[in-house]
Amino acid sequence: MTPATSFNEREALVCQTARLIDDGKLYWVAGGGGPMYAVLLAQRMGYAPNAQYLTEDGVLAPQPLLPFDPIQTMVSARAGYRALQWGTMNTAQDYAALGLVDYGILNTLQVDQWGNINSTFLGEYPDAGRRFGGPGGADSIAAMCWRTILMTDQDRRKFVDRVDFISSPGFLDGSEGARERAGLPAGTGPWRVVTPWAMYDYDADRRLRLIGVSAWVTVDEVLAECEHKPQMAAEICVLEPPSEEELVVYRSELDVRGQTADAGAWIVYQDGRYVRAG
């Protein structure tokens, strides 16, 4: 693998997540975008050639025809191309309820120290604040897949002590057995949070814990973008930057319109180190 010398932070996020993908496991991915790309990249790079995914509309193990038209990430011929099954939302949730879906991958607005996810409301629910679209499929994913991976931006408004509204469940109040008492399947829960700057897991007390940072930021810079200060692993590793090989596949086969790179900051390798450009 050749470390890349010029890439976008959002591309780095997908590459980092792709390396987490477990071979032979089934993923429920939030429709289109980063979560789907992470599984496809892991398949094509050989990290997890036999990882499979399903989407909320019941598409099972497709070989999608990229790119998709805007919004057409589900219930579309290109997204469902060469699938092994076309189902419905209820077939998707059945597989997760049965325990057959190993991982879920989500994007989100806000996450807290217990891995609870907010995609409904910023402010004081119900009246004082800004309304967003609601959990969609994320609640089912976070509740019923064995492990949940969250992809998000490193932003202090996103990493908070307590989310303003729990749209999708993490470890709830953090107490042991809280999920089971709430009626959720035993042994499930948040597993990793990945941002362009950092990687987190959860400690034995189910609290968010920083385990790695990207080569172009310091631990302090990451913590400055956390309103809630996470637990710290004994050793914080430096995450491997994206490789040229990953980017070739990602850019030429997956995000072929370069939409990911429209959004995030640019990183370049200069004078022996990675720096944020412009």
Partner: peptide, 18 residues
């Protein structure tokens, strides 16, 4: 019955019960 939705604030502000 469902194995999802429990523990969320959506649950609290819905007609769901346990």
């Amino acid at each position: 019955p469902t194995r999802s939705f429990g523990g969320t604030d959506g649950y609290l502000w819905s007609a769901a019960r346990t």
